[in-house]
Write a protein that binds this DNA or RNA. Structure first.
Length: 230
DNA sequence: GCGACAG
DNA sequence: ATCTTGTCGC
């Protein structure tokens, strides 16, 4: 996959500088639909080992038609910095990129665990990954970072806009009946309208879309087979 | 100055 | 995110 070395996040402890870079990169985000018919999609997520000392990134490539995994990769690297709200990509992207490189196969669309443009400076981890790789991305978060929204109906498929500074930045989407909604925002090369439709089309019987769910299990080591019971 | 705050 | 068993609800 193509990469722009100068766009890979490098943490040097300078918060103000990192925020400035985000403002610049946010300029490169494209919110128009620009992806081919989906053949293969990927899901990426991050977990930690050794009390947080090691960052563990999982990348799963799935067949867009069957939703079955085609290839799974796990990459590890020493954790480079602590979690700082708004700077998640600087902490997780290096390892995520390492996993994507090893995936050996360019996905038509990537589902990222976190926000796309629904971020204080418009550059959540999904948007950052999109600009860095040039690939279409969607941010699927489990909670809000910034923004407010109105009431949401209880049925699967219902959605309401998430607003911030008088602008719509994401869709609060009910992916499953009576279950806590997902916050879906475009990352790169995907429109505000298509993002929730795409996520819904990849949600089967769980709250999270398959790409994200499988990557989540791998990253958090929940992919192991249970001993006994159901 | 006082909270809020993806994972 | 992670530390962690069983348990209440759909």
């Amino acid at each position: 996959m193509p990469l722009s070395p100068d766009l890979i996040p490098a943490w040097d402890g300078n918060v103000a500088k990192a925020r400035q870079l985000q403002l610049e990169l946010a300029t490169k985000v494209r919110l128009e639909d620009d992806f081919p018919p989906l053949r293969h999609v990927a899901g990426v997520d991050v977990g930690f080992e050794d009390g947080g000392a090691v960052t563990r990134a999982a990348a799963v490539l799935l067949d867009a038609k069957t939703l079955l995994p085609v290839k799974e990769i796990v990459a590890r690297r020493p954790t480079c910095m602590p979690y700082i709200p708004g700077l998640l990509s600087f902490r997780e992207l290096p390892t995520v990129l390492q996993a994507l490189q090893a995936l050996a196969g360019v996905p038509d669309l990537i589902f990222v665990d976190g926000h796309g443009i629904a971020h204080p400076r418009g550059l959540g981890i999904a948007a950052h990954l999109g600009v860095v790789t040039g690939l279409p991305t969607i941010g699927v978060a489990k909670s809000i970072l910034v923004g407010t929204h109105g009431e949401l109906g209880p049925s699967r498929g219902e959605r309401v806009p998430l607003r911030y500074r008088d602008k719509v930045i994401a869709s609060v989407l009910r992916s499953k009946d009576k279950i806590r909604p997902l916050i879906v925002s475009p990352g790169h090369r995907v429109s505000m309208e298509s993002a929730p439709e795409l996520v819904l089309s990849f949600c089967t019987k769980y709250r999270l879309p398959e790409p994200t769910r499988l990557a989540d299990r791998l990253a958090s080591r929940r992919d192991r087979v249970r001993e006994q019971g159901t």
